[in-house]
Amino acid sequence: MNIQEIMTKGGVAMWPLLILSVLALSTIIERSIFWIRFLLKEGKILNRVLETAARNWDAAPKVAKENSKHPMGSFLYGPLRLDNPDPEVFHLALESSADDELALMRRGDKVLEAVIALSPLLGLLGTVLGLITSLGNIQISDLGTSSTTGVTLGIGEALISTATGLIVAIISLTFYRIFQSLWSNQVRIFRKAGSELEVIYRQRWSDSEVNPSAFSGNTPSKFTDTFDQ
C-alpha cells in the first residue's frame, strides 16, 4: 500500500496521527542539528574561556562574550560580565545562568512528550472506530457464511491506525531518550565548568585582598584541554 491507501484505510485517526508525526519529525530534526552544532564547539569554547580566565581574568569576559551565541559561552558570560562581585554573588550568577541555558536546551521536549502520549491512544481510537464499523454490519444469521468475509479485511484495515500510532510513538521516544541523555550529560559538564571558573575567581578574590592588582595579573593555566572532545 502507498501512503494514500494507508491514510484512507486507516480511518479518521490517521489525520491527527499525520499531524503528530510531522510535529515529531520537525522537532527531531531541529534538536538533532542543535546538539550536533553544540557538541562540536563546546569543548573549544570552554577550554578557551577557562584558560583565559586563569591567565588574565580581565580578558575572560571578552572571550566569553565573543562566544555568547553558543550556550556554553552564554553560560560562562553570565557571571563574568559582573564587575568584581562578591564570591557569593558570583556563585548565584553562575547558577542562574546555568539554569537559563539548561532550560533552553530542553526546548522541544514537551512536543515529543505529547506525541509519545497521544500517538498510541489515537491509533487505538482509530482501531476501535474501525471495529465498530466492521462489526456493526454483521447480523447473527450471517455468522459462518460468506457474508462475514469482508469483516476480516475490515478488522485488518482497522489495525493500521494502531500500528501507525505505535511507530510514531516508538520513534519519538527513541529520540526523546537520546536528547534527555545528552541534556543530563550537559548538566554534569556545566556543573564542573562552573565549579572550575568559581575556583579561579575565588582564588583571585583572595589574592586581591593581599594584592589589589591580582585581578589583572597573569598566571599559568591549569585548565587547558580539560574538556577536549
Score class of each variant (00 low, 15 high):
G73T: 09
G154I: 02
M14H: 08
S21R: 04
A13C: 09
P79W: 03
L197P: 10
L94C: 07
L143D: 03
R48C: 14
L82P: 14
T127Y: 10
L20C: 03
V12K: 11
I171M: 00
G123N: 01
D225F: 15
I160G: 06
D58W: 13
P85V: 13
T145R: 02
L39I: 10
K222M: 11
I170L: 05
S141H: 02
D99A: 13
L23W: 10
D86A: 06
A158Q: 05
A114M: 09
D83I: 15
T148C: 11
A93H: 02
T133Q: 06
D86P: 09
P85D: 01
K41T: 08
S141V: 15
T145D: 00
E95L: 15
A214I: 03
P120D: 00
K41Q: 08
T149G: 13
L121T: 04
R81N: 13
I160M: 11
D109Q: 09
G126Y: 11
P220E: 08
Y201I: 04
H70D: 02
D142V: 04
G217Q: 14
A169M: 06
Q203S: 05
S119R: 10
S221N: 05
F34I: 06
R31T: 12
G43V: 15
A169C: 07
D99W: 08
Q180R: 03
L112N: 02
L25Q: 09
V210P: 05
I3G: 06
P212S: 04
P16Q: 04
S172T: 05
L82R: 15
E209G: 02
L25C: 12
Q229G: 03
T162E: 03
L118E: 05
T152G: 15
L131N: 01
W205N: 00
A169G: 08
K41R: 14
V49K: 03
Q4T: 14
R177N: 11
G123M: 02
G108E: 04
